[in-house]
Computed example of a mutant assay.
Amino acid sequence: MTDLHDLIPPLLALCHRAGQAICRHYHAPGDVAVESKQDDSPLTRADLDSHVILREGLQALAGGLPVLSEESSPETKARRHDWPRFWLVDPLDGTKEFVAGTGEFTVNVALIDQHRPVLGVLYQPLAQLAYVGIPRTGAWRYGLAGDGRWQGEPIHTRALRQGQPLAVLASRRHRGERLRNALAWLEQAWGPLERHNSGSALKFCHLAEGEGDFYPRYSPCCEWDVAAGQALVEGAGGAVLGLDGEPLQYNRRDTLLSAPFLAIGAPQHTLWQRYQAALSE
């Protein structure tokens, strides 16, 4: 088996190439043409160009493992249950943000082994920043220096401190009763809350680098939206759990929709044990 650390440099280069293709469309006036997929989610030329770059590049890594991307064909998606180890990819996470021009979009790449993410990369094309996580090993933030080399530094989730407001990471596009109930429970149990809104998988990045405490997701999303973020958060010392309190697993169900989840920066704190108990009542 390839050492996971050996995969980081080629993954950074590959995500950067995909990001360059995305940015060419983002910065070209009138070039953000939008189609609708069967589920009414948007699809752009940037999604497709990034998909092709990542699919071809990933197939050349780690012994030619299969690639499951949001933009893969229905036939490829139907074969996925036979894959114990594969790449799970969202070539452009945050297409709505891309179309709206907010800049809050990422490239997500995860290596799945026996239903668990063992390596994840989240790349921000506009900032040329990459976040890499290997569960139980570590997490790093990489920036592209002027000489073309990647410079990395370790990142960690932060501890909860009494008297400090609880920073909740959420999407400005997703609200709903379950989120409101969660925030109300936390405010009563903990005290003051701060809500930080951002698009796409950036919330995982913020959690992993200690800029938030909690990212709950109850609205629908897909497994390729979550897997790389889970690897990152776990590598940084946090957890991404289903509502049953167990780490999320992938490629086990007929659907590619992710189960609702709670991404937690300091999972050992008693607050989260109490919250999990409240969910089961």
Rank of each mutant, 00 (worst) to 15 (best):
L126C: 07
S200L: 03
Q20G: 13
L58M: 01
R55M: 14
Q114H: 13
C15G: 10
A28M: 09
P247K: 04
H25R: 10
L65W: 11
Q114P: 04
L169V: 11
A46V: 06
F204R: 00
A33V: 13
H174T: 03
S73Y: 07
V89Y: 00
D40P: 00
G237A: 12
S171K: 06
H269L: 12
R195M: 01
G242H: 08
L61K: 06
P66N: 04
D40E: 14
Y142R: 02
E56W: 05
E97Y: 03
Q59I: 03
V107G: 05
T137E: 10
Y123E: 08
T137S: 09
V240Y: 04
A170V: 07
A60Q: 11
L160Y: 11
L48V: 02
P74A: 06
G133Y: 02
L4I: 05
D40Y: 08
A145F: 14
P135Q: 08
E281Q: 14
E71W: 11
L166Y: 13
Q276D: 14
Q124G: 08
P84I: 11
V118P: 00
A278W: 10
D93S: 07
W83A: 01
L257S: 13
G163Y: 10
P135S: 10
Q230D: 04
T2S: 14
R79Q: 15
E209Q: 06
Q249H: 04
H25Q: 11
H174L: 07
L166I: 09
L271M: 12
G242E: 04
T106K: 07
G152A: 15
L279T: 08
Q230F: 04
L243S: 01
P29I: 04
Q249M: 00
A159F: 07
E194Q: 15
A170D: 11
D90R: 00
C15E: 08
N251V: 05
S200T: 05
L183P: 06
T157K: 05
A189T: 11
L262D: 06
E177G: 08
R136D: 15
R158A: 14
E35Q: 12
S171Y: 06
W140G: 05
A182N: 10
G152R: 01
G138P: 02
W150C: 10
G143V: 06
N197P: 04
R173L: 12
W87S: 01
S171W: 03
P9G: 14
G176V: 00
A60G: 07
G238K: 00
L68E: 01
S171N: 06
L43V: 13
A28G: 12
T270A: 15
L271K: 01
